[in-house]
Design a protein around this nucleic acid. Sequence first.
DNA 1: ATAATTTCACTATCTTGCTTTTATAGTATC
DNA 2: GATACTATAAAAGCAAGATAGTGAAATTAT
Lengths: 204, 204
Amino acid sequence: MDMDREYTQDFVTDEKWQAIINNDASYNGQFYYAVKTTGIFCRPSCKSRAPKRENVRIFKCADQALAANYRPCKRCKPTREKLPDSEWIAHVTQYIDKNYMEKLNLDLLAEISHGSPYHMHRIFKKVKGITPVEFIQQVRIKEAIKFLIDTEKGVSEIALAVGIPNTSYFITLFKKKTGVTPAEYRKLNKKKYKMEGLRHGIQE
Amino acid sequence: MDMDREYTQDFVTDEKWQAIINNDASYNGQFYYAVKTTGIFCRPSCKSRAPKRENVRIFKCADQALAANYRPCKRCKPTREKLPDSEWIAHVTQYIDKNYMEKLNLDLLAEISHGSPYHMHRIFKKVKGITPVEFIQQVRIKEAIKFLIDTEKGVSEIALAVGIPNTSYFITLFKKKTGVTPAEYRKLNKKKYKMEGLRHGIQE
DNA sequence: ATAATTTCACTATCTTGCTTTTATAGTATC
DNA sequence: GATACTATAAAAGCAAGATAGTGAAATTAT
């Protein structure tokens, strides 16, 4: 319907064509390409299958393409704001730091941050070097240690306070991480505190 | 409080002691053992931790143990009514049969039936011999075949109707399962129907 | 032309051995 | 005699490679 406007569009130069077939992200923002046969327009970096050169039209901005009745591609376009992985995961670790006393699992963490638990798990490990569960356990044991040193709370109470309502399991896990049971840890470190004015001998 | 009744109880014979530490189910009903330090009584087959021999008292029946102020063990006793896995899974397959046109996944199936998706998956495979996903795919392809034979709907429409909104993927899957594409399948079986009065040559 | 099929690169979900966590029972210790 | 700790089977959940599913676009068949 607006084929008569053909001459108002940019010509498909070799440079642009190369950018398109190489999905070259450095050209993003410089131009958009539309495909006549599908009525869809993309950014140069779009990873979708390369169109035939003769079906391509070039636009300087998205509005022009929309005006010419093309719709934005679902793969490259709506990819507007995707914050980098590190920020995404920082979100997750902050949540854990604040909510270690609650029940936590992958599904929940995925939900509060973003989509798939499986994907989140992969990225978490890539960014932090440890798995989410390992991270959660470390936070909980560190908090438990603070309670043991700074308070006189009983072991069951501390277990509950750090998000491990199962006392016997808490003791097992604590011993696995620190080498000693909670009560032993308290005894050892209270003494040290009195004698040397020190704290937190094993962790940190 | 009723230590004076000690002599009215059975003696812990070597045979009974062996039955207890081996969790020997063949002795169930013949006697019960109570543990003085915990105030709990069990059947011989109970899987809980073995008590010390000197803490054990033997009873001929549960009533005697109750009368002596012991409470029944929660692991071996309440194992009264647990419906078999097959019934649980039948629930799931019925749901699939009725809802194959909707989006389905493990989490959903676990939710409508019972707890953990992982556990459900394991039991499903044990009971049915195939995984839930395989089962769903089979249902969908069988329904698609009915549509191909009984109607003139297009392939995309059929794909959507059987819960696979992505036509290209539907075709890929159909071919993987039947060996031919949907349109080919229709052509072959329509012809056969006309010529021989038959139907559904490949599946069923 | 329209519908069907294939291709491709990517993301989401499954799969399943392994680990964590729960639920109970029992012993040790202070 | 309450609190700490050990033990253990079953259920729940993780981990990470394998597989399924998506969305764009070309190609082929009708």
